[in-house]
Amino acid sequence: MKTAQEMKPNSVMLIDGQPWMVQKAEFTKSGRNSAIVKMKLKNLLSGSTTETVFKSEDKVEPVILERVAVTYSYVADSVYVFMDDEFNQYELSEDDIESVLPYIVDGMTDICEAVFFEGKVISVDLPTTIVRQIVYTEGSARGDTSGKVMKPAKLSNGTEVKVADFCEIDDWIEIDTRNGEYKSRAKAPF
């Protein structure tokens, strides 16, 4: 068993025999040093979603899911296709990969993990750190070099990320996929 606060996005718990995947988890302090976790859950069998609240210390039953290394291949009609090293293809909907969708770009080479429940692929996890290219950002407003002043920047798929003020168009940057935050400038991955 785990506590509710240990359940992160993409982790899965069993409730009354049904597997529910955590799509969002928001931890909030309530009163007298207690806390709650608000979650958006997706039923992996029915596809239905629900919002719930748990006490942070509530016990929940996690489910260990099978994982296979895959790379992103292509998208067609909102179906995202990933492929393993034996050329097996796995199809996922936008809803299945909602949490990683902002970081899916054509040509990405990240080694991802396809996640399975009872033999069916249900989602994909990205590496904790990924490298993406800025396609648009305003010029440095103040000439700041500290990295503390942030500004918006767009990736090739339209996702907006806050980056250091000194970043420029065509720069490559590292992003933490757990929170979507800019980490640093990076070298091109190829």
Partner: peptide, 16 residues
């Protein structure tokens, strides 16, 4: 403000 978004939400406890 978060109170409004959490008020009345269910919390499944298992065993129905």
């Amino acid at each position: 403000a978060w109170v409004d978004d959490c008020h009345g939400l269910p919390s499944p406890q298992g065993k129905g």
